Computed example of a mutant assay.
Amino acid sequence: MAVVIVIPARHASTRYPGKPLVELRGAGGQARSLIRRSWDAARQVQGAGRVIVATDDARIADHAAAFGAEVTMTSADCRNGTERCAEVLAGLPERPEMIVNLQGDAPLTPPWFIEDLIAGLRAAPDADAATPVLNCTGAMRADLLADRAAGQVGGTTAVFGAGGQALYFSKEVIPFVPGDVAPDAPSPVFHHVGVYAYRPEALEAYAGWPEGALERLEGLEQLRFLENGRRMLCVRVEARGRAFWELNNPSDVPRIEAMMAAMGMG
């Protein structure tokens, strides 16, 4: 069993309760739930074996099973998606090469993001986990800054060093950039794409660590790896003309639907 994709989904989101069941309308007006669109995205990934929806909520489980997804019920005590993935790993009959965590709020994630992520972790044997990062244009950076000015989190940003080693992740827009950046020009800001690939031993270790102080402050589960001295690789991915945004707030629904319509996604 080489690669297993897990889609963690919970109903009790602080910022957006019931988010996995929110319907998004595509280019043809067809409505599908967020969790269904995330599952559809996962099934397009080349080289992945099983795709599992992991949840502690019967409403999500029943809905996912109805459209044909494999579902694993996990504990309500899981504090984040990574812990939920660790619980799925513990129940697998065979040990996979890696677990990919495709969070259920990223329906616009193109398959090559995940394929490049898998290839990146395979090529870095000293990395415990990996996550994709997307270079922000000036326009995308401006959108992130506008959300923060409005008191919302529009996305997470990442800074990394030599060899792609993650240094920090934040819901603030980092690093600080003096002045403006032209809308179509690349900026020094990298948008963190909410997908992770873990080696099984790293995922098992994660489940045994207490929640970190920075993890708690930022509300970012991946910081637990950094706080425990583990190496997380940032894998640069290319948009290839595809728009990307995650559904974090109710106001993101029309934005994502507009992006889907512009790209002809049904």
Rank of each mutant, 00 (worst) to 15 (best):
Q165R: 14
G154E: 04
A162L: 10
F113H: 07
V189I: 13
E204C: 11
C136L: 07
D116R: 09
A12E: 12
G241H: 06
A162D: 14
P183F: 05
A90S: 11
L233E: 04
W39C: 05
D180M: 14
M232A: 06
G266P: 15
Y196P: 00
R79N: 07
V88K: 03
D62E: 15
P183E: 08
M140H: 14
G219K: 00
A58I: 14
W245M: 09
T82Y: 05
A106Y: 00
A149G: 09
L203Q: 03
T156P: 02
R255W: 10
T157G: 04
G91K: 14
V51F: 01
V159I: 15
V235S: 04
A243Y: 12
A31N: 04
I60A: 03
L24K: 02
A262G: 10
S38M: 01
N101K: 01
A239N: 12
E221K: 00
A182C: 10
I60P: 00
P200E: 06
P132N: 08
M232Y: 00
D62Q: 15
L167I: 12
T55I: 02
R230C: 11
P210T: 14
A127H: 09
V71E: 02
A261T: 03
A142H: 15
T109Y: 09
V159S: 10
N101A: 08
A106P: 00
A166P: 04
G68N: 04
D147R: 12
V22P: 01
A185P: 11
C234F: 03
E246R: 05
P110I: 02
R59E: 15
E83T: 10
A129C: 13
V45P: 06
R199V: 03
E227Q: 15
A197P: 03
T74G: 07
R43M: 10
W112H: 15
G91S: 11
T109D: 09
H11M: 14
L24P: 03
C136N: 06
A124F: 03
A119E: 15
E211S: 15
P20C: 02
H191G: 03
A48R: 04
L144I: 09
N228W: 05
P132Q: 07
A150Q: 15
P183T: 07
V4Q: 01
A166S: 12
A58Y: 00
A142Q: 15
G151M: 04
D40N: 08
S38L: 00
V153L: 04
G212F: 10
G194M: 14
A150H: 08
A162K: 09
V193T: 08
C136I: 06
F67K: 06
A69C: 14
I5F: 08
F67R: 10
L247D: 03
P254M: 12
I99Y: 01
D252Y: 02
F225W: 08
I256H: 02
Q165P: 00
L102C: 11
R242N: 15
G29M: 06
D77G: 13
G266F: 00
D128A: 13
G18M: 05
E87I: 01
M259Q: 10
C136S: 07
